[in-house]
Nucleic acid binder design. Structure first.
Lengths: 149, 149
DNA sequence: TTAAATTACTACAAAATGGTAGCATTTACA
DNA sequence: TGTAAATGCTACCATTTTGTAGTAATTTAA
């Protein structure tokens, strides 16, 4: 029910980057925006680039950019990359070992709810997130507009 | 996505106790059945009794018994008791802080999948678990039976 | 009334996770 | 070509979670 803080950070970073229209995100900028501990964030960014979500560009004017299309990155992938493959494959609640003498009763019980959740995480890409974000912005702008007129 | 090991242990213990028809479960018996580290299990049992799910009976022939009806204990309650009230109330993925300048986009995204999950956890009591367990046993028995005849 | 079987408590050890500091390396640009 | 702005790496520290050991207290039954 609870992702590790690191995974939470990763999702925050990536969704922040996905919804802003910048070319380049230096660690220091993300640090100021997201308030994730500076050095820990740096490590996380390096990690995310090793995992292929973003690319690091060293040197002056460097930073991090997405290394693939936003539509090709979904939330399940990110969680899996951070928490290990097991996380998404085993029971949502983390039951790895069934009670020995019978098929794990718990497993069945929420198989449906579980697969729904995984489905949502798999079907939602960073591109979807971005679209939703822009739509929300538009809606708010229109609301303001209509209030003024 | 991942409950703490301790919460996992708690669910294992309680569901084991719920599906067996014993009056009393001494720690040592549960230890042998469930292979949860002995001393850690003892602490967990004391903790579960302080939290009102089970009652401890000290002294010879002592052990642990459910302190209320199985139908009054659901999985959400157990998880909440172990992980803290926040766990079930905040976003399923643990997002506590929304990005400052706009309502957290992520929150909306899987609100539905999330509430489905919580619904299932809330609607499933230890009594339901037990019923399912007995039904499964019957089904298997009948299958064996029909294979013999 | 004493021994055995049990839980309660306390203190500590080990492992995992989260966080910090500092220096090395790379790159752009004045 | 040197300096500033950036990431990479390594080693360490702090905190939280998980696991262990031993002793005290409680209860039953021989």
């Amino acid at each position: 029910m609870i992702l590790s803080k690191t995974t939470e950070y990763a999702l925050n970073v990536l969704s922040f980057m996905a919804t802003r229209n910048k070319e380049m995100y230096p660690a220091e900028f993300l640090y100021k925006e997201l308030k994730i501990p500076r050095q820990y964030l740096r490590r996380l960014l390096t990690d995310l680039s090793k995992k292929g979500f973003i690319t690091s560009i060293r040197g002056r004017n460097g930073g991090f950019v997405f290394s693939r299309d936003l539509s090709s990155i979904n939330f399940a992938q990110v969680i899996e990359a951070m928490e290990g493959q097991e996380a998404m494959k085993t029971c949502l609640l983390g039951f790895t070992a069934c009670i020995i003498d019978h098929p794990c009763v718990m497993h069945d019980l929420w198989t449906e709810a579980r697969s729904k959740m995984i489905e949502t995480l798999t079907n939602t890409s960073l591109a979807d997130l971005k679209n939703k974000y822009e739509m929300d912005k538009d809606t708010i702008a229109q609301l303001n507009n209509s209030l003024i007129h």
